[in-house]
C-alpha cells in the first residue's frame, strides 16, 4: 500500500474531531428553528376566548405585535404571564392563542391574573398551533405590519428576552412603519 495511505485514518479522525468540536458551538439540539419565519401568518377562523360568539381570523392580528401561545396546563405560562403584563404596559400589542386548553379554565385564568392580551383565540384542537409549527407551550411570535412572522421564541418570555431580542425587533418595526 502507498506510504501516504497510512495517514488516511488519522485524517478521517481529525476531520471527525473538528465536526464534533463544532457541535459545541451549535444551538441546543432540542431547540427547533422555526421554518415559518418570513411567511405570512397562517389562515384561521377560531372563536374569541372572552367573546365566544365572535369569530376571529388572521386579519385581526394587527402587527407589529407579539403573538403568544399559552395554556393553563403549562406551568411556565404562569410565570410568563407576569412578564407579559409588564410588556403590555409599554404599549406593545399582545395577541394570545389559547392552545389545546379548556376555555372555561382559560377565562378564569385571565380574570384571576389579569388580561394583557388585545384578544385571545381558542385553538382547542391545536390545528392553528400545528400550522405555526408550535411544538410546546409557551411560544411567542413576532409579526410585522403585513402579518408576516419575523421571529419565534421558544419558552417563556422574561425581562432579558424582551430587552435583548423582542423589544428591539418591535421597535424597529414600529419605527419603519411610522413617519
Amino acid at each position: 500500500m502507498a506510504k501516504q495511505s497510512f495517514l488516511i485514518p488519522l485524517a478521517i479522525f481529525l476531520a471527525l474531531v473538528l465536526i464534533l468540536g463544532l457541535g459545541f458551538t451549535l444551538d441546543d439540539p432540542h431547540r427547533l428553528p422555526s421554518v415559518r419565519v418570513g411567511q405570512p401568518f397562517p389562515e384561521f377562523s377560531l372563536p374569541d376566548l372572552t367573546k365566544p360568539e365572535i369569530e376571529r381570523t388572521e386579519g385581526d392580528l394587527k402587527g407589529p405585535a407579539l403573538v403568544n401561545v399559552w395554556a393553563t396546563w403549562c406551568p411556565t405560562c404562569y410565570a410568563e404571564h407576569e412578564a407579559l403584563k409588564v410588556i403590555e404596559q409599554t404599549g406593545v400589542r399582545i395577541f394570545g392563542i389559547n392552545y389545546a386548553d379548556d376555555a372555561d379554565k382559560a377565562r378564569a385564568f385571565l380574570s384571576d391574573l389579569g388580561d394583557p392580551y388585545v384578544l385571545n383565540v381558542v385553538d382547542a384542537d391545536g390545528r392553528l398551533a400545528i400550522d405555526l409549527g408550535v411544538y410546546g407551550a409557551p411560544e411567542t411570535f413576532v409579526i410585522d405590519r403585513e402579518g408576516h412572522i419575523l421571529y419565534r421564541h421558544v419558552g417563556a418570555v422574561d425581562a432579558r428576552v424582551w430587552q435583548e431580542t423582542l423589544s428591539p425587533m418591535i421597535q424597529s418595526l414600529a419605527g419603519a412603519g411610522s413617519g
Binding site: 427547533l32 428553528p33 409549527g133
Partner: peptide, 8 residues
C-alpha cells in the same frame, strides 16, 4: 409536516 416543522 416539513412546511411547518422543517426537515427535522
Amino acid at each position: 409536516m416539513y412546511e411547518r416543522y422543517g426537515d427535522f
